[in-house]
Design a binder for these strands. Structure first.
Length: 500
RNA sequence: GGGCCUAUAGCUCAGUCGGUAGAGCAACGGACUUUUAAUCCGUGGGUCGACGGUUCGAGCCCGUCUGGGCCCA
């Protein structure tokens, strides 16, 4: 509870100390700096919408109580002005005149109230002599005292300060307010698209006894109650497939995954993932679903399929999207026919010629993917489904119905980066067990990203899983693709190292 | 992992050749009843990221570390 006589540390910076002194002064005079409630009859937005075209110097006769954070303050002798701002950025001017509020209240306004304070102002809605829509105070009260000064409104905060103090960023920067509202808009659109196609949303475990569903290093934790290691999930895939076995034929989950790997401008250790499975579908039906999800999301945030990338280029996400074959793209890139059956020695020659640094741990398929990324990068700017990945890097995917060594897996590239992936899912439990055992052997040899043999998952598969198409898409990356923002702008509170 | 850049007032940034630390906004005191980045007069505010070194003397030069950014792998 707030003690009246808490000593104010004198080693504080001047401005912080002065504000603490003002708070203490208010309490001393019996004024609560953090009242439990204040008068509020309308939002600033309500007022803006109600009075759209008042003439200059009009008094409406309407009395309202309004609240907002003070972002500008212009104190003159007997008539003071302030600009109030509320959470969505709507602003309204408040006016305080000597003849309405009296000398004591006007003096208090000037000396007790600072930029950043939140106040409630009760008075008539008017337009000023300059035509500014305003509330002319009959009375006012403090709603919450700010003990820290706001940053300079007119110079943008440095990127680090924006990320470390997002709450301040949201107060001062319109883009921050807009970006914070993008994600929920996209989420609502995604859920609507899923809902319209009879997909059911589920929530599956984040703490897992066994991690699986992707090639990635997990975060490890420990449960005291169960006395065992637990992992933060790297993907929900194996649980969503259990759902399909159980008859939830169209299922999706939008939730966080955690990967204990590098962080850079397009990777965050925790990131939101959309995964979806469609029984009696395949890689093509799930590609259609993915395209619809993305196009509807683009429409939801910009009213169009045309989106703007980070460098200002515009891209049209409308219509059907280009498809290229991974092995055909490689063949074109190296000038020789390359298939999934091409021996690794030959791939290594191609890679060396292209100047790719080869990691000796790479399997044949991984090498092919690296060559592909190297030769096809420029072809992946417009939305493109890259069809037919090597089967040995896709342990949860069904083999291609015609091409040997290839899996029915696509990656969707937009603006040069991988946005989503989709499969015809592997549903044969015997083959699935063989693939996972292979993975476990890689893991035993030191591959930290290899999958484990999940016996319960295999048992579920053995109860028969219908033919299924599945997809996964990073939500943060989707936002980046739709807006051109960096990943730290799409995430409200990205992980930052502590300041001290 | 490698390279480059960066850290100075509450915020955004200057700081020349190594010689007493600067600006704008913000703050404090004063004037002002139509301002809107209000204006005018005056004032205060700094562990220059941390630690070490060179030097008579370091914000500046050197080393190590920490935070942040960019590029490459």
């Amino acid at each position: 509870m707030s003690a009246d006589n808490t000593p104010i540390e004198d080693d504080l910076p001047e401005q912080l100390r002065i504000r603490r002194e003002k708070r203490a002064g208010l309490i001393e005079r019996g004024i609560e700096p953090y009242p439990v409630s204040v008068a509020r009859t309308k939002s600033l937005k309500d007022i803006r919408e109600k009075y759209t075209s008042l003439d200059i110097d009009v008094a409406t006769g309407d009395i309202e109580s309004l609240t907002g954070r003070i972002i500008f303050k212009r104190d003159t002798g007997k008539l003071c002005f302030a600009t109030l701002r509320e959470g969505d950025g709507t602003e309204l001017q408040a006016m305080f005149s000597l003849d309405k509020v009296g000398e004591e209240q006007l003096d208090s306004w000037k000396s007790d109230i600072d930029l950043g304070d939140i106040v409630s102002v009760t008075g008539e809605i008017i337009s000023s002599k300059r035509g500014e829509l305003s509330v002319l105070a009959n009375s006012w009260s403090l709603a919450a005292k700010s003990l820290r000064p706001l940053p300079n409104e007119h110079k943008p905060m440095s990127e680090e300060t924006r990320v470390r103090m997002r709450y301040v960023d949201l107060i001062v920067r319109p883009e921050a307010r807009a970006y914070a509202r993008l994600r929920p808009t996209v989420l609502r659109s995604l859920r609507e698209t899923f809902h319209n196609q009879d997909f059911i949303e589920v929530e599956t475990p984040m703490l897992q006894v066994m991690h699986g569903g992707a090639a990635a290093r997990p975060f490890k934790s420990f449960s005291n109650a169960y006395d065992m290691d637990l992992y933060l999930r790297i993907a929900p895939e194996l649980f969503l497939k259990r759902c399909v076995v159980g008859g939830i034929e169209r299922v999706f989950e939008i939730n966080r995954n955690f990967r204990n790997e590098g962080a850079d401008s397009s990777h965050s250790p925790e990131f939101a993932m959309i995964e979806s499975y469609q029984a009696y579908g395949d890689w093509r039906s799930i590609a259609d679903l993915t395209r619809t999800l993305i196009q509807n999301a683009a429409m939801a945030i910009s009213g169009s399929h045309v989106v703007t990338h980070h460098d200002g280029r515009q891209a049209n996400l409308g219509g059907q999207w280009k498809e290229i074959s991974l092995y055909e793209a490689i063949s074109q890139g190296v000038g020789e026919n390359v298939t999934a059956l091409t021996p690794i020695e030959e791939l290594k020659k191609h890679a060396t010629k292209l100047g790719i640094k080869i990691d000796p741990k790479w399997v044949t398929g991984k090498l092919a993917e690296e060559i592909f990324e190297h030769v096809a990068r420029e072809q992946l700017i417009e939305p493109t489904f890259v069809m037919g990945f090597p089967v040995d890097t896709s342990p949860l995917v069904r083999a291609h119905r015609e091409l040997p060594g290839v899996a029915e897996k696509w990656d969707l590239y937009v603006d040069g980066f991988e946005l989503a992936t989709g499969y015809s899912e592997l549903v044969d439990p015997v083959v699935q067990r063989e693939r996972l055992v292979e993975q476990a052997q890689l893991g035993a040899k030191g591959d930290l990203e290899a999958m484990q043999v999940d016996e319960d998952f295999l048992r579920a598969m053995e109860f028969a899983m219908p033919p299924t198409g599945g997809m996964g898409m990073g939500l943060d990356r989707l936002l980046m693709a739709l807006t051109g923002l960096g990943i730290r702008e799409t995430i409200l509170f990205p992980l930052v190292k502590p300041e001290e």
